[in-house]
């Protein structure tokens, strides 16, 4: 057991952990090192109602991103019925209050025996897990866009899996709700444990598990990256001038 899980889950703390645990291979992006808004206080695990995400959400460097926080680990063939059961599909994602409600139901379809820790704690609207780690064929089943929306609305920023069902991947990019990142090799979903502290480093295409000290190579997200970063296809198309901006 490393000391990492005991660190406060702030940007600075995770950056420190990265540097300690993975010397020489740690991401050296300016944002991580230059964002110590919180001193690297050592404390008990900080259970926040919102997931800890990196500067991509709030920072000033739009061309790169990293996400830190605890991970939530699931197995192979996680289908959309487990991500968001159909009885909740009466919620319309384009309505803000119903969007938030969808988040509170994220992963509520997972069998409780196999997944004793819920993704969203009872009574909460969002999850404390910023990163989801899955096996093969993540998001199979229905075309419901409610699935990536529920994960994004709950506060997850990235899914890291061995592979994706086509429609889930496309919906993730189209909505910009979560980064659907693909592992270059299998293994992470078996080796990582829920509550491990991880960093997803998009620039270097790597998943770092600070708890275990292991790193996993990711396939580059490619052209889909900027689309997700912009907030989906419509936002991207406006940003890049493909379609007129709304105010125009």
């Amino acid at each position: 057991m490393t000391a990492a899980p005991l660190l406060s889950l702030t940007d600075a703390a995770t950056a420190t952990a990265t540097a300690v645990l993975a010397p020489g291979r740690a991401p050296t992006r300016a944002r991580i090192q230059a964002a110590p808004r919180h001193p690297a206080t050592v404390s008990l695990r900080c259970h926040r109602s919102r997931p800890l995400t990196a500067a991509a959400a709030t920072g000033d460097s739009p061309s790169s991103a990293a996400f830190h926080g605890e991970c939530f680990v699931v197995g192979d063939n996680i289908d959309t019925d487990q991500i968001i059961p159909a009885e909740h599909l009466t919620l319309v994602p384009s309505k803000p209050d119903e969007y938030r409600k969808l988040g509170s139901f994220a992963f509520v379809g997972l069998p409780s025996a196999a997944y004793p820790i819920p993704f969203v704690a009872p009574g909460e609207e969002s999850s404390r897990y910023a990163v989801i780690i899955g096996g093969a064929n993540f998001g199979c089943g229905s075309s419901r866009e409610h699935a990536p929306v529920a994960l994004g609305a709950a506060g997850a920023r990235a899914v890291v899996a061995e592979g994706y069902a086509r429609i889930f991947f496309r919906n993730s990019v189209a909505t910009g709700e979560v980064y659907p990142l693909e592992l270059a090799d299998s293994g992470a979903s078996k080796e990582c444990k829920t509550e491990d502290v991880v960093t997803v480093d998009l620039d270097n295409s790597v998943l770092i598990n600070h708890t275990s000290g292991k790193q996993y190579k990711l396939k580059p997200i490619g052209d889909a990256g900027p689309v997700i970063e912009a907030g989906g296809i419509f936002a991207y198309a406006r940003k890049t001038g493909m379609i007129a901006s709304k105010s125009a």
């Binding site: 384009s94 075309s143 419901r144 866009e145 496309r170 919906n171 189209a174 296809i233």
Partner: peptide
């Protein structure tokens, strides 16, 4: 169609597939 079983219509020699709300 906004439903994954839109592929049903492939029975007619049609290209048919499911898409999400945003698409």
């Amino acid at each position: 169609g906004t439903d994954s079983h839109t592929c049903n219509a492939g029975a007619f020699g049609q290209f048919a597939t499911g898409i999400g709300n945003t698409d």
